[in-house]
Simulated assay, not measured.
Amino acid sequence: MKKKIVFLLSLILILSSCTYFQVRDAYKIAEKGDYTKSLYSLLNILKNDPNDRRTLDAFELIYPEGERKYYDNIEMTKDRDIEGYTKALLNLLRVQETYFALPEASKNQIAIIKPPFEEQTSIKRETSDSFYKIGNSFLATNYEDKLRKFGFYSEAKKYNVDNRKDILNKYNESRKNAEGRFNLEISRSKVNDQFFSRFRTVVQNDIKSYPLFSVNKERANLDLKIDLANLKYTPPTVQMFSGIDSYFETRTRTVIKRIVEEEVVNGQVIEKVKYVPVEEEYEVEIFYRYERYVKTTVAEYDISYILKERKGSRELASDSKIIRYVDEVDWTKYYPLTIFPRDMYRFPVSEPERFVMEKDEIINRVLDIGTSEINRELEKLDSNRIIGW
């Protein structure tokens, strides 16, 4: 019996360990063929605990499987599928980098053949060259393509261990072609000067926050036209809803209860009747009147925008909508119903009045929503330069 208890306690401790579930998930990810993600998760565990035996065992098992798979993928795709070949090189490089990123204490406890430094250099060189070839063959017929072409050359530069000039030249050339110079035009109708000025400043700063974007009307290759209209602020308004409600309360009271007891006297059963006080619970429905107040304030405006390439007027994004921010609070007050004098004040506690945002604050909120809408389009455009392989 004691052995069973010890076994169960040990099992509970193992299952409750956080690394148990993380390692289990790493195995599942590896079974799906995503060895890089699996090894990254194990690496994160070992950075915190280099001696975690469960994680070390998993790394020792998964690492060679992943390395072998990507070696095989490289052989299968070489000279046949340049994108597949490049992805296989990247994955092999990432798998091997997880080993180099391990704490020394972890490396000393696992039987994994250390990837030669020369091989790492060779893989980086081949990866850089593959991205360079993809960039050369990629036709940039529009601005989004130019961003993507720059993304390929950026990856080639990242792994350019030999500092090849042809790669650097292509990187610089593609970067120049991928620069987004915005002609920003913002018009307004029934929008005050302060709101208009702040909106324009925020959008300008958002554009400049991206590495390849700038505001340059004279040399613009992109047009961003925004129209703001009908800025409205509705001061706080209050609606009141009233009614009658109730709740049940359990109370106790003393009642006289008739009790019949039997006694044996001279061999005969005699019934005796007693009247005794007894505590008894009962429910009382207590009614009260309530008034529920709802206070609301609103700020809104119309926005429409179009983002397009200046050459050829190719549209990249557009939309038209009402931007609105509503701030609403509520509170309730309670009053007695004098049905029973003793229940006159037995009702819920009234809530204090609540307050909505001040005008300046709600205007700030609704402005942020509109500028965030524009920024999402900028972010989406910029994402074309990211090669997420």
Rank of each mutant, 00 (worst) to 15 (best):
L46S: 01
K311H: 12
G243L: 03
K380N: 11
I12S: 09
I244L: 04
Y233A: 06
E118M: 10
K274C: 11
Q239R: 13
L39V: 05
L43S: 10
Q109F: 13
A140T: 05
F117E: 14
A58T: 12
I167D: 02
I29G: 03
Y99A: 05
T55F: 12
R219V: 04
I323D: 11
E104H: 13
P103W: 15
K107A: 04
F355N: 00
K333M: 11
K2T: 07
Y132W: 06
L11E: 10
T141C: 05
F213H: 00
K107H: 03
F7D: 12
E75T: 12
Y301C: 08
S41L: 07
N108S: 14
L147F: 01
T127S: 04
M240N: 09
Y63W: 07
F241L: 08
N384A: 10
T121V: 09
V6Y: 07
V326M: 08
S304G: 07
S106E: 00
S209V: 09
L89D: 08
K87R: 12
D245V: 00
L168W: 05
A105W: 13
N364P: 02
N108L: 14
Y27Q: 11
D245K: 01
D34F: 11
M76T: 11
T201M: 14
E271P: 15
E155I: 04
A140K: 14
K225D: 06
S304Q: 06
T234A: 00
Q22H: 13
K190P: 15
F21V: 04
R125K: 10
Y143M: 05
V294L: 13
E373N: 08
R200V: 03
V284T: 06
E118T: 12
I303A: 08
E358K: 04
S38K: 03
A58R: 12
A58G: 14
E283A: 08
I322S: 15
K170E: 11
P236N: 01
D302S: 05
E377Y: 14
S320M: 07
T98C: 08
S174A: 03
T19I: 12
I12A: 07
T55C: 11
E328S: 04
Y35W: 06
F131W: 01
R365P: 01
K124W: 00
L61D: 09
